[in-house]
C-alpha cells in the first residue's frame, strides 16, 4: 500500500493541481468506478481491509479538494513540503483537460449514437432519390450521402467498424485495394443501412459501376 499512500490528493485522481471543481467531480466518479465497493477491479485486487483503506483516502482527497478553504490549506502544505511548485497553482489551464482514464479510442458507443442521430435528423430524401435513380452507383455517390450529413469518414468507422482504409477505397472506387466481393457486399450493405437506402440497389449499382470502371481502365 505504500506506493498508493505516497500519492497526493491530486495524484489519486490523476488530475492537475489547477483542476476545476468539475474535473474533480468527474475524476472522483471515475476513481470510484475502480476502487468502489461494486467494482470488479477492486474486488479482484484488494482484500477488504485494503479496499477500505483506499476508499478512505479517496474520500478524504475528494472532500478536501472540493472544499475551497480546505483545498487552499492543503495546497499550502504541499508547497511547504516542496511536493509541488507554487507556480503550478497559478498556471494557466490547459485547453483540453485530460480525463483520468480516457481510453485511447473514445467511447465508441456514445459516438455511434450521436452519429446515427445526426443521420436520422437530416433530410436526405433528394440525395437518396438522385442516387437510386442511377443505374450505376459510384463511390462518389456514397461519399455525397456522407458529406450531406456532414460527417467524417472516421465517424463512419465508429459506427460500422469498417476500417478507414476500406471506407476510403469504397468511396474512391479504388478496386485495386477493395476486398473481395463477398466482403465488399457486406460493407456496402452496412453503409446503405446506416443511411437508410435500399442495400440491394446500392450493392447492385455499385458493383455494376465497378465492373464498368475495371472494363474501361
Amino acid at each position: 500500500m505504500r506506493k498508493f499512500e505516497e500519492l497526493n490528493h491530486y495524484q489519486i485522481f490523476g488530475i492537475p493541481i489547477n483542476a476545476s471543481a468539475f474535473e474533480i467531480r468527474q475524476a472522483y466518479k471515475e476513481t470510484l468506478s475502480i476502487y468502489g465497493n461494486d467494482s470488479p477491479i477492486s474486488y479482484s485486487f484488494f482484500t477488504e481491509e485494503e479496499s477500505k483503506e483506499i476508499l478512505d483516502r479517496v474520500e478524504e482527497a475528494f472532500s478536501t479538494l472540493i472544499d475551497q478553504e480546505k483545498r487552499e490549506l492543503y495546497d499550502k502544505m504541499l508547497v511547504h513540503d516542496k511536493k509541488i511548485d507554487p507556480s503550478d497553482l497559478t498556471k494557466k489551464k490547459q485547453k483540453v483537460p485530460t480525463p483520468l482514464f480516457s481510453s485511447k479510442t473514445p467511447s465508441g458507443a456514445a459516438i455511434s449514437k450521436t452519429i446515427k442521430k445526426r443521420i436520422k435528423d437530416k433530410d436526405l430524401k433528394k440525395t437518396k432519390e438522385a442516387i437510386l435513380s442511377k443505374d450505376m452507383i459510384s463511390g462518389d455517390d456514397l461519399k455525397q450521402l456522407r458529406q450531406t450529413v456532414g460527417i467524417k469518414i472516421e465517424d463512419l468507422f465508429e459506427v460500422t467498424r469498417i476500417t478507414v482504409s476500406i471506407l476510403e477505397a469504397i468511396e474512391n472506387d479504388n478496386f485495386g485495394t477493395l476486398p473481395s466481393t463477398v466482403y465488399l457486399k457486406n460493407f456496402l450493405k452496412a453503409y446503405a443501412k446506416l443511411f437508410e437506402v435500399d442495400p440491394k440497389k446500392i450493392i447492385d449499382g455499385y458493383l455494376k459501376n465497378l465492373n464498368h470502371i475495371k472494363g474501361t481502365s
Partner: peptide, 14 residues
C-alpha cells in the same frame, strides 16, 4: 471500453 485501461492504471499504481 476503459476496463483494460483501468486495470492497467491500478497495476501500475500498486
Amino acid at each position: 471500453v476503459t476496463l483494460g485501461n483501468k486495470i492497467e492504471k491500478v497495476c501500475n499504481r500498486h
